[in-house]
């Protein structure tokens, strides 16, 4: 088990370095001189050349990459050209908002998704099952911005129940959580249902019934735990993807999170900020996958007892 986890972590390290390199290289090939962007107005070419030289932008690629990695190891992600602040600081200001959004919407997704999946599985092929699954499908396929605007219109503008945008109070957190949570709950519900239905066909379910357990105990004790193995994995990966920034939701609701940081970095050609925020979210996803794998191994005794 420990060996499995250590192995899994060791495998992740080269992947992370490779990703940093790829993001770094991709942003190098983008056209445009960042110094020009930084200086706003037209400036003397000599000044641009001097600053470029000062910032080491003329150094060979590998030297610059090495410098970037080295800085990263010391918590220095460079300086934003536009916002004129350390990137680390910008990310650390934005991240708590993204975390709040991720936690609240993941909770909504689980609270809706898991029971929906269980009920659908138990009531397989009934009207209730079809209704719930239809609802989940809508959640999956409805564009997030559209659902967001719909809720803003109804709950915010018409009924005046919740604030339309901003992220300062708990009341602000409700609508984004519902929008994002509902979207993720659909896949959780469908996976819970299909996984539970698959598990209920197993021989050990028949054994549990033969023991005299009532059906609810058979489903909840013997079915659910086995069927949750893939669902937990999916939940962990979904959560990681939420943590890496919900670009659309953050934009629609004006939440200053990682997603918005990335959008503004792109639109302003703020290379250090873009580079580091992309690396940051990618790393969150990779770590999320790692956690999902480790959780998986905890749930499955075959891996755990190895």
């Amino acid at each position: 088990m420990v060996k499995y986890i250590v192995n899994r972590i060791l495998v992740t390290i080269p992947i992370i370095i490779a990703i940093i390199l790829i993001v770094f290289l991709l942003l190098q090939v983008l056209p445009g001189n960042p110094i020009q962007v930084m200086m706003k107005e037209k400036v003397n070419q000599a000044v641009i050349d001097r600053v470029t030289e000062q910032m080491g932008l003329n150094d060979p690629l590998m030297v610059r990459f090495g410098r970037y990695l080295w800085g990263m190891l010391h918590g220095d992600l460079g300086h934003s050209y536009k916002l004129k602040r350390p990137v680390t600081q910008l990310i650390m200001t934005a991240f708590p908002n993204t975390v709040k959004l991720a936690i609240t919407s993941a909770l909504v997704a689980w609270i809706i998704g898991i029971p929906t999946g269980i009920i659908s599985a138990i009531k397989k092929d009934t009207l209730l099952d079809r209704t719930l699954m239809g609802f989940s499908l809508v959640g999956i396929s409805l564009p997030v911005f559209w659902a967001a605007m719909l809720l803003q219109y109804i709950l915010g503008y018409k009924l005046k129940l919740l604030p339309i945008s901003g992220y300062s109070t708990i009341r602000h957190m409700i609508m984004p959580a519902i929008v994002l949570g509902w979207a993720s709950s659909g896949s959780i519900a469908r996976l819970t249902r299909s996984s539970l239905l698959g598990v209920m066909k197993n021989d050990y379910i028949r054994t549990a019934r033969a023991k005299g357990l009532v059906e609810s105990a058979v489903v909840l004790r013997h079915g659910l735990k086995n069927s949750m193995i893939p669902v937990v994995t999916m939940m962990a990966m979904q959560f990681a993807s939420l943590l890496s920034g919900a670009v659309i939701t953050e934009s629609v609701f004006g939440i200053g999170g990682i997603g918005q940081l990335m959008v503004s970095a792109i639109s302003q050609r703020d290379m250090p900020l873009l580079q580091s925020s992309v690396v940051f979210s990618t790393m969150i996803i990779i770590i999320g996958n790692l956690v999902a794998d480790i959780l998986y191994s905890f749930l499955d005794p075959k891996i755990r007892t190895q």
Binding site: N202, D203, Y204, R206, T207, A208, R209, A210, K211, G212, L213, V214, E215, H222, K225, N226, L299, D300, P301, K302
Partner: peptide, 28 residues
């Protein structure tokens, strides 16, 4: 009734199956 039958199964009548490899729950 369903409830009464649960009291019979595993208590007054029990059953073992052909598939020993898969008849026990792997997570317990």
């Amino acid at each position: 009734s369903k409830r009464e039958m649960c009291d019979v199964r595993g208590n007054e009548i029990s059953m073992i199956f052909q598939e020993p490899m898969t008849s026990l729950n792997p997570v317990f």
